[in-house]
Design a protein around this nucleic acid. Structure first.
Lengths: 248, 248
DNA sequence: CGCAGCCTTGACCATTATCAACGCTGGTGG
DNA sequence: CCACCAGCGTTGATAATGGTCAAGGCTGCG
């Protein structure tokens, strides 16, 4: 089903054992979903490597595939007819792509960097769901989390200022780093300023200006164009409007 | 489990048979979810009537209940510490409230008008999911749709102009009316201008001005403060940027 | 070393927010 | 039954945030 693909994959990665590599990758993903679904997942999925800029999903196309990102990063976005773009999310290793999918994709997805994904067919996926209620429960949980994240992003896009948006974004990345076992101080930005802008509902220029302002205020320190250090986490959190605030 | 509540309910509605009424309401909702889950749903749910402004869910509270709205309308929103509000959705009859819920509510929900809901406990809900895979599948489908709607709203909030936002909103309401069997020409607005503004990431004044502009251009006609007629659906759709547009 | 693409900074501008005043409407009490 | 009041909605004038246009700097790759 995926023999040649995996061979290519693993040659590219210069690893000795293609199958064990893929199995290992599948394992790390599927563990999250449902341990006892592992064998079945492997049997209906194949492995896909992708290069920077590669299109995984195109808005409007029939939704045939779903993906688990196993390495690298992906941007998920929607376009208006005149080209205005809204990035609805960045996906990283372990993230699932395709929960919000009906018969056709309602978004596009492109690789931000080289990476890889565990890809499976929507058809098999449906069958699998029926046979694997645990998997379904796990997916429902994920959908629930994604929905919460979407609500937070709506709050950001609808009601926050430029500074608050960028601060929220950086705080989110820091939290993600902490969840992944990091200290949440050094942040990698694998995306361009234009992509950050399209995620936050701003322009490149504004992202750049606000970044400068945060730098001047000593809240962050740029290590390079695509990585920075958070010098004052508390101040960043305050700027982000993190206190949940329910009444008053 | 809910005898007195139902009695009150049905007295208020001046219907002769409380239980059959509630069963009927449950039926209409639960049909959508899973027909064979009906009896179980009835056994673990109760009925709640609510008045305008009543709080169903408060952000930050432990998430004990989930709801199916059976009549009336509800606003779901998030607040920033300083009081800025983002309404993340309006719910109407048949909508489910609580998909995006973890241990605690991450949003508040208040009744827009009088109405009623089928309420059940999160605890029972979890058990029910395990026992009713069909129900889980239905909820996953709904979550998927909600996620798509959330993505559309992000596009709206991040990239659309005030006119496009209002046009999109009205077009959505028209589509909803069509799905409910209506002609999609006469639109009810059970919410205030301020609520529309907080949903679209605008101010009351801007909503008012843009409404006037659409009225002047003959795209819509106000029937009253809370209902209007769409005179030029095609123009409205164009203003909303409905063409899905994937490239170029 | 040079070029292309990305990023930054600056000057100016437009959209929408803010502040303010007034009109409408529906409910209530005289 | 009418009048008043409170809340909501509309409209206008002004201001501010962020967008647009433009120029120049950095960086990484060929």
């Amino acid at each position: 089903m995926s023999g040649t693909t995996e061979a290519i994959v693993c040659a590219r990665d210069s690893r000795p054992d293609p199958c064990s590599l893929c199995a290992a990758r599948h394992l790390s993903v599927c563990n999250v979903l449902a341990e006892d679904g592992l064998r079945r997942l492997n049997s209906i999925s194949d492995h896909q490597d992708f290069g920077a800029g590669e299109i995984l999903v195109r808005e409007g196309d029939p939704a045939t595939n779903l993906f688990n990102i196993t390495s690298g990063a992906v941007r998920v976005y929607k376009l208006l007819p005149d080209g205005r773009r809204q990035i609805v999310g960045f996906l990283f290793s372990g993230d699932f792509l395709g929960l919000a999918t009906g018969d056709r994709y309602a978004f596009s997805a492109e690789a931000l960097s080289t990476g890889s994904a565990c890809r499976f067919q929507k058809k098999s996926y449906r069958k699998m769901l029926v046979e694997q209620p645990d998997l379904e429960t796990a997916l429902l949980d994920r959908a629930s989390h994604e929905l919460q994240a979407a609500h937070n992003q709506m709050l950001l896009l609808g009601r926050k200022t430029a500074v608050e948006r960028l601060a929220s974004f950086l705080a989110d990345l820091a939290a993600r780093d902490r969840r992944a076992g990091g200290a949440g101080r050094i942040i990698q930005l694998p995306m361009t300023r234009a992509e950050i802008a399209d995620y936050l509902g701003l322009t490149t220029e504004t992202v750049s200006r606000v970044t400068s302002r945060l730098k001047t205020r000593g809240v962050i320190r740029l290590l390079s164009l695509h990585s920075l250090s958070i010098e004052k986490p508390a101040e960043l959190a305050e700027l982000a409007g993190l206190d949940a605030g329910d009444g008053a």
